[in-house]
Amino acid sequence: MIAFSRFSLALAWGAAALFTLAGVMLTYEVVARYFFTKPTIWAAELSQLCLIWGSLIAMGWALSNRRHIRVTAITSLLGHGPQRALELFAMVAVALFSAIVVWKGFDIFYDSFERGRTTGSLLNLPSWVAELSVPFGFAVLFVQSLVESVRLLRGDFIPADKVPNE
């Protein structure tokens, strides 16, 4: 579990780098287009890829650090036992949903890969480059939800009112 947590953290740092790279590319595009009237053919599409990959590969880290959206209006009124049970239920639901997305997402990726689909843009990148991020990101989320389930079953639980709000 520690190794996967490190992997998840590395992916989160990679996502941060991708977000930064997207910002740099879009800034360059704005400057090139509006100050030098020399727009690029690559900045918009590559920054979209960075944002897509960054968002999806960071999901596991967000789950492990409870940085996803949580509605705790009712659960925070419950005792620690019911909160833990609901948290475990949520992790199982995330795991099931993620498994379905990995399955269906892989089918979409593989179909595009086999058929050689492209984006149809000026760069004409293969479509599977963006589509692969879905099964990969949700596979990471699936494993992380299983890790979180095991942690909950072992008694490692943070009540809703104690989760940091940084």
Rank of each mutant, 00 (worst) to 15 (best):
L88Y: 07
Q144L: 10
E166S: 06
S55Y: 08
N124A: 12
D161Y: 06
Y28R: 04
W53C: 08
A160D: 11
K38I: 09
L153F: 10
S47W: 02
L132C: 01
V134S: 09
A130P: 04
D111R: 13
I158Q: 03
P135T: 13
Q144V: 09
T37E: 12
G105Q: 07
H68G: 13
Q83G: 08
L49V: 08
L51K: 01
R6I: 10
S133Q: 06
G54E: 10
S149G: 12
F157W: 07
T72F: 03
A16C: 14
L21E: 03
I2M: 05
M91Q: 13
F36C: 02
V31E: 05
A10V: 15
P126M: 10
L153I: 14
R33M: 04
R67H: 04
R70H: 14
R33I: 09
K162Y: 08
G79A: 11
F136N: 01
F113K: 02
W128H: 11
L56N: 07
W53F: 10
D107R: 05
N65G: 06
V71S: 07
I52C: 03
V94H: 07
F19K: 00
T20M: 12
I52E: 05
T118D: 12
I158V: 13
A160I: 05
L63W: 01
F157D: 12
R151D: 15
G79V: 06
V129F: 13
S145T: 09
V102P: 06
Y28M: 10
V92N: 02
Q48L: 10
L123W: 11
F36A: 09
D107M: 12
V102T: 13
A73Y: 02
V129M: 14
K104E: 14
S145M: 10
D161C: 01
A44V: 15
A99P: 07
A12R: 02
G137N: 05
F106C: 05
W53A: 15
I41V: 14
G116L: 01
L123C: 08
E45M: 08
F109M: 15
F157Y: 13
K162T: 07
F7C: 08
G116N: 02
V102S: 11
P82G: 13
F157N: 07
G54K: 02
F97D: 08
S145N: 08
R70K: 13
R115Q: 15
G105I: 10
R151A: 14
A85C: 03
G155E: 09
S145L: 09
V30I: 15
M25I: 12
I108P: 00
A73D: 11
A43K: 01
Y34I: 03
A3S: 14
S121E: 08
A32Q: 06
T27P: 01
S64M: 12
S47E: 07
R6Y: 11
L11R: 00
V134W: 05
F157M: 08
G54I: 09
L152I: 13
M91N: 13
P126A: 13
G116W: 02
G116E: 05
G23F: 06
Y110V: 03
L51R: 01
V163D: 11
I57H: 01
P159K: 04
W13Y: 15
K162L: 13
A85R: 07
V94E: 14
I2N: 10
H68K: 07
